[in-house]
Amino acid sequence: MTDELLVVRAQLGERDAFAGLVREWHEPVHAFVRRMLGPGAADDVAQEVWLAVVRGLPRLKDPARFAPWLFSIARRAVTNRLRAEYARPAAPGPGPEPDIGDAVVDRALVAAGLAGVPVLERELLILFYLQDLSLETCAEICGVPVGTVKSRLSRGRRLLRTSLAQKGHHA
């Protein structure tokens, strides 16, 4: 059953469809929150996210865009917890934009080195490499142009390599 169908059924008031959405998307949301905030706050923030979903789902205009909408809510919840870190100015860009298609990044390595990457780059590394969301969807979730997503991903990979090197990995 597609997400859109589950969302439409949930909007109609079918509780088993809402349960289906939670079963399908809880782990990705929890993983995103956990990787952004650490395991300590992950349960409570994930609950905040799902409460916001319950409140907002009846008004969701485009059920086909459930995933970006869900991650926008998750990002907002994370932003509220990391307001100080998000307020820091972004580091200067790395120069020419990279070709994302050529970038081969090991998912396990990304997960291992994320803690050492600043939040603006970390959230995109998680969304793009670990949640397999498209550049356009990442841009929609973060509210920035696709070009900014590309440059942040490039900078994120560089910072990730540095972080992994410090931990003794070879990326």
Partner: peptide
């Protein structure tokens, strides 16, 4: 926390009653 735990936590706001 797994999905069923989360559904348990959401039982009140989802309650039709």
């Amino acid at each position: 926390m797994n999905a069923d735990d989360m559904l348990h936590r959401l039982a009140a706001p989802l309650s039709p009653a």
